[in-house]
Amino acid sequence: MSKTIKLIAVACLVLLIGAFTIPENNLGEGYKIGDIAEDFSLENVDGKMVSLSDYNDAKGFIVTFTCNTCPYAVMYEDRIIALDKKYAPKGYPVIAIMPNNTSVKPGDSMDAMKERAKSKGFTFPYLIDAKQEVFPKFGATKTPHIFVLDKTESGLVVQYIGAIDDNYKDVSAVNTKYVENAVDALIEGNEVPQKETKAIGCTIKI
């Protein structure tokens, strides 16, 4: 009799564990436009921990989920550097976060990230979401995936979600610079003209 109870208990446990493991694949909804983004503390390529609250003078952030191994992300690297160079002095620095599971993508390991940041001359922090807890909060699904945040009295408001521009292939053929338009609008105190855009990217590896 007690054996049966034990068996039932084990079965219940297995089911319970099952129930809790399912949401791991379900990335949840993530931030919507107008939501307040939570701060985080992630390790940078220089070994230091970085939080958004470290940036006292920032008016907002260009949070960029990117990585070493996604060809789309690589094609946008120079444009991400250009964004930081243009907008960090205006109060909107780039914060790059590498969200992939590095055991699935060894090319995105901290060592590889350090190397890439050095060889490309990243002017911004390149953080690792080692516990993979930050990207689900944002609702990032791919690299590259951009979230423009605006600092207000009530917190960091998500003002733009999506792509950097409308031509991954050819920077000279870009028609609309989505992120620049968004940040320019925020700087001028205007409404962001296009708040959400879609682009192809590499699935974040979990």
Binding site: G162, Y168, K198
Partner: peptide, 8 residues
């Protein structure tokens, strides 16, 4: 390239 128009 205009993925924003065709993805949706």
């Amino acid at each position: 390239v205009d993925s924003n128009s065709w993805i949706p």
